[in-house]
Write a protein that binds this DNA or RNA. Structure first.
Length: 371
DNA sequence: CATCCGTGGCA
DNA sequence: TTGCCAAGGAT
């Protein structure tokens, strides 16, 4: 802590002055509602501002209060989050809203210990909410702040390996009484000037204070960690039709990858297995039904955070057995029109688009698909 | 403490 | 086309 926490250093003043004129005008900055700011902070985790803005607006129209969110069911919540990714954020936000409703009378807590105890809220998000909503002097250390501080200090190792040190600096730099603006200013600096590639040092309020710039190292800092190659998986996916022209979808288990989202059934193609074999095996294991595999619909390449997939999607005809949720949470027959009501992963949206643009169930051969 | 967890934009 | 990167948290 500085000896005089009320005094503003030239470093702090340069940033605050810059923010006053060059700071971004973002929707959540017009609000002091802790809930609205909370929603923005969760959506902004690992996600860029321009991606978040339309989701943020729609979310607050749909769930304007903590109570309305707490009262919603998980399918509604995930439908509003569909396409944003990292779906545990939505599940945790929903869960936390119910905790606030039950334990805090529906009012977002103002004590740090109570805030950080909520699921999905860590130290940075708690500090972000409490500083933005109530101007409380809690520091933050998100990706922007890590990069800005790494350059300011000419950090000689990856920020990940110096978290405690960077937290100390974030705390030490924070002017009490102006925590709201200062934290927002730090993030704006990282997002608009001190960018990952080609930082705009000529237009940076901290140029004169920046050690990386002084040493001409701003292009090499922050130092990167070496990344491991990611695996590629091949997945057989079944678009299963019944005689009523409906499609079979299942809901993924609540935990793990894409938890709680609906999908077209399928699974990993094992070594030495054809796609058709894989699909027949998977629907037997996961749903307890027999299908005939028909025409190829589409191949979809998709990259997740730690592996890549190719989905090989085939039309199928339901032959035998009542679908059961053996390897999933739920199963349902739905019409093509009803698919809109369910939250699907991005890669599955392309399947739906292909179905809408290409085949209509009435046009499919009813009984004599090649096996 | 390393790994898991989505998606879009960019060079 | 491919890899990197972005307002992190949970386990």
């Amino acid at each position: 802590m500085p000896h005089q926490p009320w005094a503003i250093s030239p470093l702090q003043q340069a940033l605050l002055r810059w923010y006053q004129h060059q700071g971004r005008d973002l929707p959540w900055r017009h609000s002091r509602d802790a809930y609205a700011i909370w929603v923005s902070e969760i959506m902004l985790q690992q996600t860029q501002v321009q991606t978040v803005i339309p989701y943020y607006q729609r979310w607050l129209e749909h769930f304007p209060t903590i109570s309305s969110l707490a009262a919603a069911d998980q399918d509604q919540v995930l439908k509003q989050w569909q396409g944003l990714g990292y779906y545990a954020r939505a599940r945790n936000l929903h869960h936390a809203a119910r905790i606030v409703e039950a334990d805090h009378g529906g009012k977002f807590p103002e004590q740090f210990e109570q805030v950080i105890a909520l699921p999905g809220i860590g130290r940075t998000t708690a500090g972000g909410i409490l500083s933005a909503a109530f101007n409380q002097p809690w520091p933050i250390l998100d990706g922007n702040v890590k990069r800005v501080l790494a350059r300011l200090l000419a950090l000689d190792r990856p920020p990940k390996q110096a978290e405690a040190y960077l937290w100390q600096w974030s705390e030490q730099l924070l002017p009490h009484g102006q925590a709201r603006d200062f934290n927002q200013a730090l993030m704006d600096l990282g997002a608009t000037r001190c960018t990952p590639r080609q930082p705009l040092c000529h237009d940076c309020p901290w140029q004169a204070h920046c050690r990386a710039y002084a040493e001409n190292k701003h292009h090499q800092i922050p130092i990167k960690m070496k990344t491991n190659p990611i695996p590629h998986k091949y997945i057989g996916v079944a678009v299963i039709w019944n005689d009523a022209g409906q499609l079979l979808i299942d809901r993924r288990p609540a935990a793990g990858l894409l938890g709680g989202l609906w999908e077209f059934p399928g699974g990993k193609i094992e070594p030495g297995e054809t796609v058709q074999d894989c699909i027949v095996r998977e629907v037997t294991e996961e749903l307890g039904i027999a299908v005939d595999v028909g025409e190829h619909l589409i191949d979809i390449d998709h990259a997740y955070s730690h592996f890549k997939v190719t989905l090989q999607v085939y039309h199928c005809r339901h032959r035998q057995g009542e679908p059961q949720p053996l390897g999933c949470d739920a199963v349902r027959w739905v019409s093509l029109e009803e698919l809109d009501q369910y939250a699907f992963p991005k890669a599955n949206e392309q399947i739906i688009a292909a179905l809408r643009s290409q085949a209509h169930p009435i046009d499919l051969p009813p009984t004599d698909l090649p096996v």
